[in-house]
Write a protein that binds this DNA or RNA. Structure first.
Length: 552
RNA sequence: UGGCUGAUGGUGUAAUGGUAACACAGAGGUUUUUGGUGCCUUUAUUCCAGGUUCGAGCCCUGGUCGGCCAACCA
């Protein structure tokens, strides 16, 4: 993937992998995993993790398991499983195996039994308040509770009966017996199993007890013989526990490494917050084009290539970061510029009548589909007596250096003729309703022998063949650069103008658009058909991102 | 006030004891039948204080500042 001749420097995880390869750790095998919890849709932060995990495997001849971390039946659902699989595939990655932590519930249960047998786990009947009180604080060590020294036999009996559903939810837990005085709070006898009677999306009502993250994740890694288990920084303090279980259980020594999660300006990146936006209807759903979700970005017209390029550019590190969303947009534009079909669409139509054009005459114009791609060919559009231009492309009293249309001025109609503005028609109250222009006869695009030099080129649509379309314009979802870091509720910083809907007139070639096709509405931005459209009668386009605009 | 972890332009990322570089963003120019693209130029960086060294962004010591940890979430 790196440019030839010049070697890309390795990030710290690649260095670890290369060192392991050199030392023949795990016989030179590299197996990573991507472990989402199916309780929400994937976002751009997950894309970073996906690119890391799958990219590592790809570069070092290994594989990546997709493993759903489904240990909490209360929040998880198959809808999320399906969306996650779809998003990973769309990003262009293939997993070695599709696994579920719930596949391992029997083994995990056996692991718990072993710990109890070894005197390393016990059943605690305390309430969560009592437990919290006995746990101490970071500066005050915890104290043992009354159940800590139960016999192995009693623990075994109680735990088996928990599993059978003999005790009510929340009445007892299984805890690892480690060190109540540890400076790491997670080592102060962490809960490893709790009672829940909820229906699990895969195991149904088979289980009445479910393992906690710390007693499922690392063990799942071990069972699959994952060599490099990569997660985000907030799990650093879990690593001590992760290693403790591997040692006490005597299972495959997977190793955990942590990197900084992605943060991006003007959005939020936690599933909890995104779920709130969905549930409280601030957005239309997880795939709302304003969401930082993979599905939202896809619907908005972002390409997987742009997202993958972005993830590669931002790198992997351990320091906290807040990445400028304009970097993502740069990669989106870069990709779209080379692949999108150029078309014309007018958002705020201003009627132009070509006075010296014969009434019924329609003339074909041949326009390039994509100047960046010689293979893309041309298409035909028709020029006629009555057209629409963008209202903003005409100014009655323009500032200096304005080189679009003005009274008495000339402008090139993209792909067609040069016109001159002869007359401005207004209502009584001064509103401009129509322009009367004349075209320059021998100035047609491609066969221009007029000798005129025209600085301005504007887009247009022919009144008789233009098609109406709804266009959804998006702005950032939040007004604050880092809403999650602001004081108070992040929702107070929602940008209430993040969606603007306009009616546009577009060229008829758009009638056959699909949501796979990427378009550039010339001089405006990149657009994609929304899946809600039912062509040909309700065309709906999403604005992916605007063109850069150096005119102000 | 415990433990863990981190600190390089506005934002990211490199430089692995030897000239602080690349990208984005900003500014300016040029080309252009998109005020797009391309091309060129430009602004701006090692948290602080000591130490080791011929030489420190990098190593050592001490500070400062940020993040994470006291869910029957992951």
């Amino acid at each position: 993937m790196s440019e030839e001749g010049k070697e890309r420097s390795l990030n710290f995880i690649e260095e670890i992998v290369e060192r392991d390869l050199e030392n023949n750790t795990h016989s030179g095998r590299v197996l990573t995993r991507f472990p989402p919890e199916p309780n929400g849709y994937l976002h751009i932060g997950h894309a970073k993790s996906i690119c890391l995990n799958f990219g590592l495997a790809r570069n070092y001849g290994g594989g990546t398991n997709l493993r759903f971390d489904d240990t909490n039946p209360v929040t998880e659902d198959t809808e999320y499983v399906d969306s996650i699989k779809n998003d990973v595939k769309w990003l262009g990655f293939e997993w070695e195996n599709e696994f579920y932590a719930s596949d391992y519930f029997d083994e995990l249960y056996a692991f718990a039994l072993k710990l109890i047998g070894d005197g390393l786990a016990y059943v605690d009947d305390s309430t969560s308040e009592e437990m919290a009180a006995l746990k101490g604080t970071p500066t005050i060590p915890g104290r043992p509770g009354p159940y800590r020294d139960r016999s192995v036999a009693e623990n075994l009996d109680l735990f088996e009966r928990m599993a059978k559903g003999e005790f009510p939810e929340g009445s007892r837990v299984l805890r690892a017996k480690i060190d109540l005085a540890s400076s790491n709070m997670l080592m102060r006898d962490p809960i490893i199993y709790r009672i829940k009677f909820a229906e699990h999306h895969r195991t149904g009502d088979k289980w009445k007890i479910y393992p906690m993250y710390d007693f499922a994740h690392g063990q799942s890694d071990s069972i699959e013989e994952i060599t490099h288990s990569i997660c985000t920084l907030e799990f650093v303090s879990h690593r001590e526990l992760y290693d403790w279980f591997i040692e006490k259980l005597g299972i495959f020594p997977s190793r955990q490494y942590e990197f900084a999660r992605l943060n991006m300006t003007y959005t939020v990146m936690s599933k909890r917050k995104l779920l709130q936006l969905v549930n409280e209807k601030y957005v239309a759903g997880w795939d709302d084009p304003r969401m930082p979700t993979i599905s939202g970005m896809r619907r908005r017209g972002y390409t997987s290539r742009a997202i993958v390029d972005f993830c590669e550019r931002i790198g992997i590190q351990k320091r906290d970061n807040l990445i400028d969303v304009s970097l993502l947009e740069f990669f989106v534009r870069e990709d779209l510029n080379r692949i999108s079909t150029r078309v014309m669409a007018v958002f705020e139509p201003l009627k132009v009548v070509i006075t010296n054009w014969p009434d019924e005459k329609s003339e074909v114009c041949r326009v390039e589909n994509n100047p960046e791609d010689p293979e893309s060919g041309h298409r035909e559009i028709y020029f006629g007596k009555e057209i629409y231009i963008e209202a903003g492309d005409f100014m009655e009293e323009p500032p200096a250096k304005y080189f679009r249309l003005k009274p008495g001025g000339v402008v090139r109609l993209k792909g067609a003729y040069i016109i001159q503005c002869d007359e401005v028609i207004k209502t009584d109250d001064g509103r401009i309703t129509e322009l009367r222009c004349s075209y320059i006869e021998n100035s047609k695009s491609g066969e221009d022998v007029s000798g005129m030099k025209v600085k301005g080129v504007i887009h247009w649509v022919n009144a008789v063949e233009a098609v109406e379309a709804e266009v959804r314009l998006y702005d950032r979802l939040f007004k604050a650069e880092n809403p999650a870091a602001e004081e108070g509720d992040f929702k107070d910083f929602i940008n209430e103008n993040s969606l603007t809907v306009v009616k546009a007139l577009v060229e008829p070639s758009l009638l056959k658009a699909t949501s796979e096709d990427k378009y550039q509405f010339m001089r405006n931005g990149y657009f994609v058909l929304d899946p809600e459209s039912s062509s040909p009668h309700t065309l709906i386009f999403n604005k992916t991102v605007g063109l850069k605009d150096s005119w102000k």
